[in-house]
Amino acid sequence: MVRRVIVEKYNPRWITLYEAEAERLRKLLSDNLLEIHHIGSTAIPGLSAKPIIDIMSVVRDILAVDLLQKTFEQAGYLYFGEYDIPGRRFLVRGTAEMRLAQVHIFGISSPDIKRHLAFRDYLRVHPEAAAEYSSLKTSLAEKFPLDIDAYIGGKSGFVKDLEAKALKWYRQNPQY
């Protein structure tokens, strides 16, 4: 399976796609759902991104999510379980080759919640960092259009540095 690496200019329609996906997840997660957030590059106005909506759901009981695997699959999601991040449940809507949405579900005590929100909010209020990230993503997509691993590897150092800055900034700006 080859997943093409396509990075597009920011599309305001991504907000509408997020809202529709969030509504599906609210129904599926029901009373276990505490919060739902649009995360990732499609959540940052002006940022170029792969046109895949990333959503983070925060739940009371992460283990209860596993009991919904068949329900998620019947609703059109591929269910990957933790998928390399302990305590997370990862789902994809679409196909393995053409993802429409990626869902990251965390239990309320997961430190990954803050990491995702800090990264998103930092880029929203630091347009110079968003522009630099956008440029990197675009150039990597042009360089590695058929190699998602090289694309991800090419931006990993930048992302780790940006995450560290974002978390520090987040602690200093509790209003976000």
Rank of each mutant, 00 (worst) to 15 (best):
G40N: 07
H126V: 09
P12Q: 08
L162H: 03
I39A: 04
E142P: 00
L63M: 13
E142A: 06
G76F: 05
D31S: 14
I85L: 12
H37N: 05
E132G: 02
I152Y: 06
E19H: 12
A141N: 01
A75R: 01
A131T: 07
I113S: 05
Y151G: 01
G76Q: 02
L91S: 01
V125N: 10
Q102A: 15
H116S: 15
I152A: 10
E82D: 14
A75H: 03
A96W: 13
A166V: 07
P45A: 04
N173E: 11
E35Y: 15
G153T: 13
V159Q: 02
K9T: 13
L34Q: 11
R99Q: 15
P145Y: 03
R89T: 11
L63V: 12
S139Y: 04
A49I: 06
P174S: 08
A96Q: 14
D161M: 11
K155G: 08
L167A: 10
A75T: 08
Y151N: 04
S48Y: 02
A164G: 07
H37I: 10
P12F: 09
S109A: 15
I6R: 07
R4E: 14
A118S: 13
G157Y: 10
L136M: 02
T138P: 00
G76H: 05
A75V: 10
R89D: 05
R88G: 01
I152L: 04
S135H: 05
L67V: 06
R4G: 03
I62Q: 06
S57E: 13
R60E: 15
P86Y: 01
Y133K: 00
L136S: 00
T16D: 15
L29E: 13
P145K: 00
I85P: 03
A129C: 06
R124Q: 13
H126S: 06
S110W: 14
P51Q: 04
L68Q: 09
R120A: 04
L68F: 02
R115Y: 14
F90H: 08
K114Y: 14
G107F: 14
G107S: 12
M1I: 12
